[in-house]
Design a protein around this nucleic acid. Structure first.
Lengths: 203, 203
DNA sequence: TATTATATGTGACACAGTGTCATTTGTCAA
DNA sequence: TTGACAAATGACACTGTGTCACATATAATA
């Protein structure tokens, strides 16, 4: 999280920094971004950056915060609407993200965000995704909202495995969505993947 | 691939370079490794490195080549043995890799390799995994060996989706295998994931 | 053997980026 | 108007990069 100092900055200056950061995070994958480019773009002194943020990671996480919060609320709603249907909720999330990325004209930026959310979350990961946003549904709060009555799930352990699988295919589908020209193709494939997971590949 | 010059080097010198490289690639995730450390470890001049390899990526890919080739042969065998059962073959691959990593006492090194094999393979990926090793089974040769008669697969497209899903969960299971203390836990989870994919999560 | 190509090895060099810190500049209350 | 605290700054010491002119082998030729 940014420092108090950053928060107290005039809106205009904050925006200039955030804008420069967005440009840099859009330009190349996270590992290749540089603080140098951000401070030059924002026209602030190098030292100032460190007065506001502890690192690139810190800044990016802050920039993602609103989206994460909105997504959390969205998930909560959807799970209630669908009476705990996890597949339906995941599809809604997928649509929510793709639609939002499109609307905001920040396609490339969102593409990078999805890429940055590494599958390998461990201590060595460059971009340390905070626990509560590593994947939707890994939150205790949401897990309790899921209806498992018509699923082949015996215990909490099983549920986590299913969530993990859903997370993997959703992330993959999102990556493909940004990769393919056609939005339709990625969505069609995603639906197929969900179908396989629900009903199985075997005849 | 390395240059002719590197290939002609005395075995001893080559090994020293490869050994130093292995240490560096074991130490930290790929993005954080440095050529500096490798040349210092191998006691060669900085310029020499560039006489042998074009980049870190080049070197790492060369180091992986044997393993990839062995794996290819192993897959071919397994697919024939199992008469085209893709699930059985994938499980065999999983066991092959985990066993090999354990035997070679290169656990940490293999852990890094699996991490490096990004799910996001595109032009912006730092470690450009060559097409033929991006995931087992994506090769045409293998796809033809798969028996789809008792699978709910209508066309080539569907098969690719199933392969993609199997690849995702296998990679995840491998990551977990290196992450958890217990090898058993990761394998158990993997079996469960395969089971869900085969028979579905719905009751 | 001496001479000349050719291949290989080398480290200094110019760059790009990092995080820090002593110093300067700005702000506001007494 | 002074003093005290907050904020901004950029030079500094590092670490790392890829290149290139030059040094040193190795082999081929006269």
């Amino acid at each position: 999280m940014p420092t108090e100092t950053f928060m107290k900055l005039p809106e205009e200056k904050k925006n200039k920094i955030l804008q420069a950061a967005k440009e840099e995070f859009t330009r190349v994958p996270f590992e290749q971004t540089s603080i140098k480019n951000i401070v030059e773009g924002a026209e602030i002194a190098r030292g100032s950056f460190y007065q506001y943020f502890t690192s690139k990671e810190d800044l990016l996480q802050y920039m993602m915060k609103d989206d994460i919060d909105n997504l959390d609320n969205f998930i909560r709603e959807k799970l209630q609407e669908s009476k705990g249907d996890i597949f339906e909720a995941y599809l809604a999330i997928y649509d929510y993200i793709t639609k939002k990325a499109w609307k905001d004209k920040d396609l490339q930026f969102y593409k990078r965000l999805i890429e940055n959310a590494k599958v390998v979350e461990d201590e060595s990961s460059i971009l340390r995704i905070p626990k509560d946003i590593k994947g939707p549904f890994h939150k205790e709060e949401f897990i309790r909202l899921i209806d498992t009555s018509n699923l082949q799930i015996q215990n909490e352990e099983d549920l986590h495995i299913v969530i993990q699988m859903l997370y993997l295919i959703t992330r993959k589908a999102l990556v493909n969505n940004f990769k393919y020209q056609s939005t339709e193709k990625a969505r069609k494939e995603y639906l197929k993947m969900i179908d396989y997971l629900k009903n199985g590949v075997l005849k």
